[in-house]
């Protein structure tokens, strides 16, 4: 229906105005100098030890979060897919909640459970175990899987439902051990879903800062928090924040590109 293509106009205009123009502004401000252009901010973004450490922390944090989400999500999705239909429907709805919940509500929940005086910490104390520190790296790693695992599981479920069960049964029927069936048959078949889920988690973790800010403030050196502190704190420096955002997007882009390359090998 050729005549209706003009209906695309409002959307294109919207994307241009609210994604294109802001991204252009970021690039422009990161390069702008009183006279002409400068790469000084990129030099700083890529050479200053604090930013290098932030960049490394972010990449490691996002990668490890992705691994945790992949292991937990794969297990959760597989175990859920084996349940009767009624339960499956209920659990899928349950997994949708953490994914769409405000990060601050999540932070509140974890403070109540694992904060300094948290319920679980009191139980640990009465058992004579050491107290768990929510406001540490381990703390952040205990919080973020709360949405990453269900996010990953939901991304994987459709594929698992369509191919998983029958493939497993076929593999077991032809005499494969459970381990062989998993590694040789199921995992390769699920790889596109696993890599799609990994992209969601990796990209999300590279940019996330709200929950971390609510829990640890600026104590943990992540690239996203560095950018936010340059925007919102007394260290106000928007052009430098712009350069760091370009670095952040480029790093996320490289990660996503590698995952896409990997995914291509499994596409038929």
């Amino acid at each position: 229906m050729r005549g209706e293509r003009f209906l695309l106009l409002p959307g294109l205009l919207f994307l241009l105005l609210f994604f294109g123009y802001p991204l252009f502004s970021i690039a422009e401000r990161s390069l702008a100098a009183p006279e002409g252009l400068t790469l000084a901010r990129y030099a700083k973004a890529l050479a200053a030890p604090a930013y290098l450490e932030a960049w490394r922390n972010s990449v490691v944090f996002a990668t490890l979060s992705t691994l945790v989400a992949a292991l937990g999500g794969l297990f959760l999705a597989y175990w859920t897919s084996k349940l009767p239909l009624r339960w499956k429907g209920f659990l899928m709805s349950l997994y949708a909640i953490p994914v769409s919940l405000s990060g601050l509500v999540v932070a509140f929940g974890f403070i109540v459970l694992l904060g300094r005086n948290g319920v679980l910490n009191q139980i640990f104390a009465s058992l004579g175990w050491p107290r768990f520190d929510l406001y540490s790296w381990a703390g952040l790693f205990s919080v973020f899987p709360f949405y990453n695992i269900p996010l990953f599981a939901l991304a994987l479920m459709p594929l698992l439902e369509s191919v998983g069960r029958s493939l497993m049964e076929a593999a077991r029927a032809s005499g494969a051990t459970p381990f062989q069936a998993w590694v040789r048959v199921l995992l390769p078949a699920l790889m596109p879903g696993i890599l799609a889920g990994s992209s969601l988690v990796f990209a999300g973790m590279m940019g996330a800062f709200g929950t971390a800010l609510a829990l640890t403030g600026f104590a943990k050196n992540l690239l996203s928090l560095q950018i936010y502190s340059l925007v919102a704190e007394s260290t106000f420096d928007l052009p430098l924040a712009a350069a760091l955002s370009v670095v952040l997007m480029a790093s996320t882009g490289v990660g996503l590109y590698l995952l896409a390359l990997w995914e291509r090998r499994y596409r038929r």
Binding site: G204, A242, L248, M249
Partner: peptide, 20 residues
């Protein structure tokens, strides 16, 4: 599909501050 992955809320926020 890719846009929200490549452009996180953090970057949307900064872009809006600079553009508008």
């Amino acid at each position: 599909q890719v846009l929200p992955l490549l452009v996180p809320p953090l970057v949307v926020g900064l872009g809006f501050l600079l553009a508008f």
